[in-house]
């Protein structure tokens, strides 16, 4: 009887250990594959020169890098304020009403909509209805709509984590709702909101499907000069190189592009961690 229990323990433990290792190994394999195969093409030329359409080995991917960065900055400044404000409205002003429940269910479902469908939505609404054409702006708005539910959900979670006693204490001293939010609730939940936002944003920047439909293009002669220009982006560049390009070295250049994309996204995650660390330290000083 006793041996049986111990045996069971061992089996279960080795199983969950295997599962944990499996995820770690998957990550190592992906990164390893991408870096080993793509590392050769990384150079100053690759990072800082414009794409040569005739021969991809003669130029870089500057337009795609800048396009993705513009996309990230634009989405950050639209989706983060909108997402955090929505979360505050839902959680602080109408925490448990029919309206808030309906909105919340809508947001949960929105988070599950496939990204290509956001592309179709962006095409119909921003490109056609608002007549923004296929442009950087349309893509920023499309990615903003896509990240919004993630940002709202993450922000709501960190707002919920603010202890009720803090709000109660502030209100009992005669603070208005907004003063309580500004002085107590937001400072307490900001690290979580920023982290959630940046992680949502970094996921969005890796998306290919939605931006193809609303403004990304495989080749631009120059960098976008206004938000109404078409633009290049890393994931789409990668996709074309990997699937539709005739150059014999296209696959390596696709993996090189992947390294740049992964690095940008990891740098963003790192920023999120640093911001959270910094704000926590400030809070506990």
């Amino acid at each position: 009887m006793k041996n049986n229990r111990i045996l069971k323990e061992k089996i279960i433990f080795s199983f969950i250990k295997m599962a944990a290792f499996f995820s770690a190994i998957t990550l190592v394999l992906i990164i390893g594959y991408v870096f080993i195969r793509g590392f050769k093409v990384i150079s100053w030329q690759f990072l800082f020169q414009e794409v040569q359409q005739r021969d991809i080995t003669k130029g870089g991917i500057l337009q795609a890098i800048i396009g993705t960065i513009y996309l990230g900055i634009g989405t950050f400044f639209i989706a983060v304020p909108a997402g955090i404000s929505s979360a505050i409205f839902l959680n602080e002003y109408i925490p448990d009403t029919k309206t808030s429940r309906v909105i919340r269910v809508a947001i949960r479902n929105l988070a599950g909509v496939p990204s290509i469908v956001y592309g179709l939505f962006g095409l119909a609404v921003f490109v056609q209805f608002f007549n923004l054409k296929t442009s950087l702006l349309s893509a920023i708005l499309t990615l903003s709509s896509m990240t919004l539910p993630w940002i709202i959900t993450a922000s709501e979670e960190s707002l919920k984590a603010v202890p009720f006693e803090f709000r109660e204490a502030a209100l009992a001293m005669g603070a208005t709702n907004w003063q309580t939010i500004k002085k107590i609730v937001i400072p307490h939940s900001l690290p979580g909101m920023i982290t959630g936002s940046i992680l949502g944003l970094s996921r969005a920047l890796g998306e290919t499907a939605p931006i193809i439909l609303v403004g990304a293009t495989f080749y631009c002669r120059s960098l976008p000069t206004s938000v109404f220009d078409k633009f290049m982006a890393l994931p789409y560049h990668l996709f074309i190189l990997a699937t539709q390009h005739a150059h014999p070295q296209a696959h390596e250049y696709a993996l090189g592009t992947a390294i740049v994309l992964i690095t940008i996204i990891y740098l963003m995650s790192l920023t999120a961690i640093l911001i959270r660390y910094h704000l926590r330290k400030k809070k506990n000083a």
Binding site: E165, F166, E168, A169, A172, G174, T176, H188
Partner: peptide, 21 residues
Amino acid sequence: VTNLRQNIGQVFQKPNPFPKS
């Protein structure tokens, strides 16, 4: 009501200072 609460303060059962200085 904010004015009322300024005039009628409250001290709670569990000490609840803000996580500030």
